[in-house]
Each structure stands twice: as C-alpha cells, then as structure tokens.
Design a protein around this nucleic acid. Structure first.
Lengths: 235, 235
DNA sequence: TAGATTGTTAATCGATTAACAATC
DNA sequence: TAGATTGTTAATCGATTAACAATC
C-alpha cells in the first residue's frame, strides 16, 4: 500500500466489480490472470484495469500477470471488507425487511443490529432475529452502540429529518434508499440507491431504442402484445 | 424536440433527478426557475443544467428562465413517463415482494403484472393482487402478454439463464438486481442495481475517511462505541 | 429600453485508451 | 535468454465549466 493521492470516484465504483470477478475466478480455482484476460471477461480495456489497480500499488508482475488470490485480498482490504460493520435499518417497511432478510450481507460482515420504525404493529417484532424498536429509542441506541451505517428505507417525507438526527448523534455512513437527496455535514458519507431513478433511465433507453417519439407503434404493441423491434436509423 | 445525436449516459442519469426536483417545485407552486436558482438547489452548476437541457431542445427563455410545469412535462416525455409500462418480477423473494408492494411504481405507470418463482410455497399466492406463477409458465406468459421490463430478483446462479431465456422470448428491458453481469444481445437493455456493490463503495469511503489503514482506531471504536472522528491529514 | 438569463461556443478539466520501456 | 505482461507516460476522448453574444 503506498499511494496517497485522491482516488477518482469512477475507480472506486469499479472496485466492487473487480472484487466480484476475482472472487469468481478464485472459486474456479484460477490462480493467475493477466489484465488482458480479465479485460475480456469484464468487457473493459486491459489498460483501464492496469490503471485502476495501480492507483493502489503494483499488484502484478511483468510477464506473469496478477495472482488472483493476492489481488482479491488486496482489493478486499482496500474496500475495507476485512472488517465487520454494524448497521441499523431505519424504516421497517417491505424494503427494510427485505434487506434484513438478505443473509448475504451477514456473510460478508455487514451486520444489521436493529430496525427502527414508528408503526406500532411492527415495533417489538423480530425479523430474522433482529428486533424492531420504536424510533423514539433510536437516539439512545445510536449513542450507546457502534453504528457504522444507517440504512434509510423510510418515506421521503421523514428521511431528511432522520438523517440529520442520525448525523447529529454521530452516524457517519448513510445508505439512502429514500427518494430524496440528503443534506448532511460533509464528514457524513452518503450512498444513494434511488430505485425509481434507476428504473427511469432504463425506460428512457427502452423508449429511445424502440419507440422514439412514435406513440402509435407503442400503443399498437401494448395492445397486441407484439414483440418490439428496434427502430431503424433514418437520418 | 429537435436534436438527434446520441445523448451521453451522464446526462441521461441526471434526468430523473431533474424530474424529481421539478416535480417538487411544482408541488410548491413555483412557476418559474432560472438555471442559477436550480443549480443552487441541486448542487450542480447552472452551466451544466443549461447544457443538459439543451441536448433535448431550448426549453427556456432568455431573461426569464424556465417554466417549471412546461419543463417538467418535457422531461416526463423525454424519459417516456407519459406511458404505462408492463413489468414482471422474476424471483418472488423478499426483494421481489418489496418491489411489488411499492405502490409508487403503479402511480407512475409502472405496473407489475405477474411474479414468477420456482418455490411451491409461493406459487399461487397473491402479493397486493399480483399473482405468483410457476416459472414454468413464464415462456407462455411472455409470449402472450406485453412485457416491457423484467425485474430480476433471483439468485445469481439462475439470473444469467433466465435473462437469456427472456431475451429469446422477446423481452427488451431488464432491471437486474441479481449480483451478476448479464450477457444479453445488444438490442436488450439492462439496468443493473447491484446493492452489494453500492454498499461496498460506501464502506470504502467510510474507511478512507475514518480508519485509513489504522485498524487499532477501528477496533477501539467498535468495542467502545465511541463516535468516529475524521482522520487528520498528515502528508 | 435595461436587466436578466438563456443557448451555445470555447476553454478546462478529468477519465480512458494507447504505447512502450522496464522487468519478471 | 526470449516472450509476456506489467507499470507508467503520453495521447485521446469526453464531460464539465466558463464566457458571452443573442434575445426575451
């Protein structure tokens, strides 16, 4: 580990994908891989792979490539996955429950310790062994237990206030599923998952490719259930 | 609507956010806004807003700014949100169910018509009025009903095959929550939501800011539940 | 008209790709 | 050693920001 200059967000966003591919290679008992081979698998350039990795140090060896297990473990360390993380879920609705039930998180060391909600029907319940508490108790919990990440799965209307409170009480990481942009101090880190936005960009692309501006085709297809056909270029 | 050249992905990804902010302004009965005012709210540059919008045509007016309602509706059309979309959920686990239960989708015209799963305990059930069918029946369903988007919420191991089948049967849009990269023909559009990757990038940032390389601090904080403090620069 | 603010061109910045000397 | 492949510098490409003439 040597570099110290700021890593670009683009690179950081690619790290989990490298980690995933390396994990898969490891499972397949592949011990070494060159940037060229990996680039073919991942559909990116070999050059980008080498550039990306070299932000964190020289993990490869000329004439050989990269040792899969070594590289995997280095990226694991870089991402901070060699530790456990304590998380809470704020908002015990369907999505919050789904995340609590996602057992893969625990396997990776992302442990959900508590769920908070205001709904009396949920409070006191247990989801996969994780208790649902009244949001009233959140301040007390957060101040007396380590919380690395708060998972925000509550309605838009409440998310901003709750995030501010959590920030005030010392929570430094927010994984925000609420459809709103949080406004928190800059020492608090937020990662947004805006599902509706994600779906909309997909719909944009579908529209662009198949229905660009021509509503008739779309209506017809919708009614008849006909398979869609790409639009032909006609510029 | 005039331009015809390819819009950059960066711009497309920002469109839903513009749409959201404009919707909020509309709710607040604000009728006009300048790129400068909007840039302050959204934390991006006014220049970027004007550039982005001008990809699709001149929606503003010199000396005035933008009419909120008009711009809102134009972006709505650009994103293709002035139509309904038929969707199916493949994989009726916790996440799939959470998405079916998310009523906001329906309000926007994203309608989930059916859920498919292999689990006999789920088949025949109904989630918010949406029936769960055996995956056996999926081919028949897809070939006889319009499906704009397949929402993939199934285990990694099954996702690739299912996506290929769906593509073969004519589904052109895939919203992929499975933790794997799909390999589909290029006329099939995929939008990935890799939750684990998203969480990992958050953890990277938390680590970088608070625990950079120093495990002792982390251990201590975890044990004592002390509030974290940003690392001081010491280069 | 004068002031405001767009649409758009030009300048800058950052990220990706290409190239190749270093070296295992 | 010869071949392969990295690490790294330079070139290219794309995206963001700045600037300003056009115009409402």
């Amino acid at each position: 580990m040597d570099s110290d200059r700021k890593i670009s967000p683009a690179v950081i966003n690619r790290l989990p994908r490298y980690y995933r591919y390396l994990g898969d290679l490891l499972e397949s008992d592949i011990t070494r891989i060159s940037s060229k081979e990996l680039s073919a698998k991942m559909n990116i350039t070999a050059s980008q792979i080498r550039q990306d990795l070299n932000n964190f140090g020289g993990f490869g060896q000329q004439g050989y490539g990269y040792n899969v297990e070594y590289l995997y473990n280095e990226i694991k360390k870089i991402l901070g996955l060699d530790r456990m993380y304590n998380m809470i879920v704020v908002g015990g609705g369907n999505l919050g429950q789904a995340l609590v039930n996602y057992t893969n998180f625990e396997k990776r060391g992302f442990v959900i310790k508590a769920v908070f909600d205001t709904n009396p029907r949920l409070i006191g319940m247990t989801i996969r062994g994780v208790e649902v508490y009244d949001t009233d108790q959140m301040e007390n919990y957060v101040k007396n237990n380590p919380v690395d990440v708060a998972i925000l799965t509550l309605p838009r209307s409440q998310a901003v206030k709750v995030a501010n409170d959590l920030a005030k009480w010392g929570v430094k990481g927010m994984w925000n599923f609420s459809h709103v942009d949080l406004q928190v101090p800059e020492d608090v880190l937020v990662e947004n998952v805006h599902l509706t936005d994600s779906l909309m960009t997909l719909l944009y692309k579908i529209n662009e490719m198949y229905y660009s501006g021509d509503e008739d085709i779309h209506e017809a297809n919708l009614k008849n259930g006909l398979p869609m056909k790409p639009l032909t270029e006609e510029e």
